[in-house]
Amino acid sequence: MRAVEAGDAAGLADTLTRNREFMAPFEPWRSEVFFTEAGQAARIEALLAERDAGRVASYVLVETGSGAPVGMINLGSIVLGPFRSGGIGYWVDRAWHGRGLATAATLEVCRIARDAYGLHRVEAGTLVDNLASQRVLAKAGFEQYGLAPRYLHINGAWRDHRLFQRLLHDEPPL
Rank of each mutant, 00 (worst) to 15 (best):
G67R: 03
A57D: 11
A105T: 02
A157Y: 10
I154V: 12
A46W: 11
S58A: 15
C110S: 07
L174A: 14
Y59I: 09
V79W: 01
N19V: 09
D52W: 07
A104L: 15
I78L: 01
T103K: 08
R51Y: 04
L163W: 05
A105E: 08
A46M: 14
L80A: 10
D129V: 07
M72H: 12
A116E: 15
L61V: 15
P82Y: 03
E45C: 05
G118H: 06
G67N: 05
P82Q: 05
A116P: 02
A157N: 08
A124W: 02
R20M: 07
G81A: 04
E63D: 15
V109A: 05
T36I: 10
E32M: 05
D170G: 14
E63M: 13
T15D: 06
H153V: 06
L147A: 13
D93E: 03
Q165P: 02
V79Y: 00
V4L: 09
T15A: 14
T17R: 15
Q40E: 10
E27R: 06
Y117W: 15
A42L: 12
A95V: 08
S31V: 07
F26K: 02
P82N: 08
Q144I: 13
H161M: 08
L127N: 02
L174E: 13
R30K: 15
R111T: 14
G118C: 10
R135M: 11
D52C: 06
G100D: 12
Q134V: 03
S58P: 12
G141F: 01
L12S: 01
W96C: 02
F83S: 08
N130D: 03
A116D: 15
C110A: 11
A24H: 07
G89P: 00
L167D: 04
S58M: 10
L107E: 10
A104Y: 08
A13E: 00
G98I: 01
M23E: 04
T103M: 08
S77T: 06
L147N: 12
E5Y: 03
V136Q: 03
V70M: 07
A38F: 12
I73T: 01
I112L: 13
L131V: 07
E143V: 15
D170W: 11
V60L: 07
H120A: 04
L174I: 09
L152D: 01
G54W: 09
P172W: 11
R18L: 14
W96I: 03
L147I: 15
R135P: 02
N19A: 06
E50Q: 13
R51Q: 13
T36C: 13
V60Q: 00
F35S: 09
V122Y: 00
L80F: 08
L127T: 01
A148M: 13
F142Q: 01
